[in-house]
Amino acid sequence: MITLTPLRNFDVPVHASCINPDEFKSKTLKEIAELPVTEGNRNLTLSDLFKIEQDKTETPSITLNGDFKKVKRVGQGMKTGEIIINGNAGMHTGERMAGGKIVINGNADSWTGSEMKAGTIEIHGDAGDYLASPYRGSGTGVKGGYIIVDGSVGNEVGCYLKGGVIKIKGNAGIFLGYHMTDGAIYVEKQCSSRTGAAMTGGKIILAGTVTELMPSFTIDSIKPKVKVDATQSVAGPFYVFLGDLADHGTGKLFVSKTNNPQLAFYEKYL
């Protein structure tokens, strides 16, 4: 196991896509120390910014202790191994990851798990905007994998989702699951407006209160419970909405009936 600790506080962003189990594997401590990172516009090596220690334990492969909020692209494109971040994580953590596991014992910044294909990300704090969403303008969504957030998430989470599961135990912001085509998103508490805009497939499960429902969704049925993934199903009852009709979509939006009495008028259309 490699342990990294920041030597000081960072004022400007640090790009450190080399913090990656695949990159560290089969490298000596000295080689790891010389991996390139940038701080602002300066080209530096890993050892210029972090204290690097090694011990014999196998898992996790990398432990990051301290505040990594300014450190971007940790675990980018990783395929195997495990990273534990004991502190806040920076932007683009786990971007394009294709396997392995990242555990964040703190808050995660925006674009965590962007364009990921497989693997697991556990966030034991809040996550920022664009969790599991592609970069601005892009339509390359998450293809698979599993993301679990203990806290709340920001806006535009799970955009262009093509597969995989996102579980959020707190609140979610606007445009959750924008343009998604497949996969599942589960929000336990409050969810803000414009959920599932332009979605054409997949499912969004909202167990808490909903601020507003898009008018381009139509009610389909009421179900007593709903399955999130193979391991979890949630007890309802749930209103089932289909949409987004503006995009001829057949995505499913499950909204808790008990927590949303304001939606009761939909029942007359059943």
Binding site: Y135, R136, G137, S138, T140
Partner: peptide
């Protein structure tokens, strides 16, 4: 203009 994802 419409393709930031193309540039970055």
């Amino acid at each position: 203009l419409i393709r930031p994802e193309d540039h970055y």
